[in-house]
């Protein structure tokens, strides 16, 4: 979790290595013990300020971050795009510089623009956490998914994961491909060719367009299928019905021992059948619980390990 200036950020899964992930998941595990207590709060970040900036609507991620910060005794401020100066056309830079004047220790940002969190690091002295930038990255989702998988299976190395659906437009898929591979899991992408990014095999994943190929997976990770993909001119799939018939994750397509995950919010009856979502093999609610402790762990890790080891100085390359 690094940046050129030595401050640590979590902008994407490229900012962490396997040891970082193990440490964060272990810390999350110890927060789980804290949440079992009657007093569900620790004083770790007392006097610190965590600012959440959500330029895109999100209930679960923003509330999860806010509660995580509060459980650590941090002060929280949240700014949502609607009803703020962002609505009035203020630039991202002006917004961030304005809120930076309050001296936040951590800025959590969600933005539709790829790379927005990286830009934010230029305009604030805070640690920056990417809570989702466009189709690019959503690293805390990946960490909570890894946590959930590790809790359920006891390991990550060698786990077979099938990610099913709209990989093309999914920041969750992109972070997960990176994070799962980093931790030794095998990844298979399944979906119509229109929704699998061309060239993605080069990242070390396998690709299939046949839903039957999920049979060997330990975990079937279902992505949200968005209605916008059927918009005129987009033509990624002809109809939702066609998508569901070919790639919907249904009981008939699963073995009872396979685990099912979904980042939410779900479209029941579209990418995932209702009985699958509610089945014992579904980890979907556990993912939500994991979100809280994982985000507590990320906040804790950023603030308590503030500087990276001095090494890897940026090198200015010559042309070509």
């Amino acid at each position: 979790m690094t940046d050129r200036d030595g401050r640590r950020h979590l902008l994407g899964m490229a900012d962490v290595d396997a040891a970082d992930v193990e440490r964060i998941l272990d810390t999350a595990k110890s927060f789980e013990a804290v949440l079992d207590r009657e007093v569900k709060k620790v004083p770790t970040l007392r006097g610190r300020t965590v600012m959440t900036l959500f330029f895109e609507s999100s209930t679960r991620t923003s509330s999860s971050f806010e509660l995580a910060a509060k459980r650590l005794s941090a002060d929280t401020m949240s700014l949502k795009a609607s009803g703020s100066s962002v609505d009035k056309g203020e630039s991202l830079k002006d917004t961030v510089q304005t809120i930076s004047a309050y001296g936040p220790d951590v800025v959590v940002i969600r933005h539709a623009g790829i790379g927005a969190p990286g830009l934010v690091t230029r305009w604030t002295d805070a640690h920056v956490i990417n809570a989702g930038d466009g189709k690019h990255q959503h690293p805390t989702q990946c960490l909570l998914d890894l946590y959930t998988m590790r809790e359920a299976l006891g390991r990550l190395d060698g786990v077979q994961v099938a990610i099913v659906g709209d990989v093309l437009h999914s920041r969750v898929a992109r972070s997960n491909i990176q994070g799962f591979r980093m931790m030794g899991a095998e990844v298979l992408l399944v979906g119509p060719k229109t929704l699998i990014p061309r060239g993605i095999e080069a990242t070390g994943v396998r690709v299939s367009h046949d839903i039957r190929d999920i049979a060997d997976a330990d975990v079937v990770y279902v992505l949200r299928m968005q209605r916008e993909r059927m918009a005129e001119g987009a033509a990624y799939v002809p109809t939702l019905q066609e998508y569901t018939a070919r790639w919907g994750v249904t009981r008939a397509r699963l073995r009872p021992t396979q685990l099912v995950m979904h980042p939410g919010p779900m479209n029941r009856g579209v990418e995932i059948a209702t009985d699958v979502a509610d089945a014992a093999q579904s980890l979907i609610l556990r993912q939500v619980e994991a979100g809280l402790v994982t985000r507590m762990a990320v906040l804790y890790d950023l603030v308590t390990r503030p500087y990276r080891e001095p090494a890897a100085a940026p090198v200015v390359a010559a042309v070509a």
Partner: peptide
């Protein structure tokens, strides 16, 4: 908290 912390245990 700002100094380097040891590994967290449960």
């Amino acid at each position: 908290v700002s100094s380097r912390q040891p590994v967290v245990h449960s």
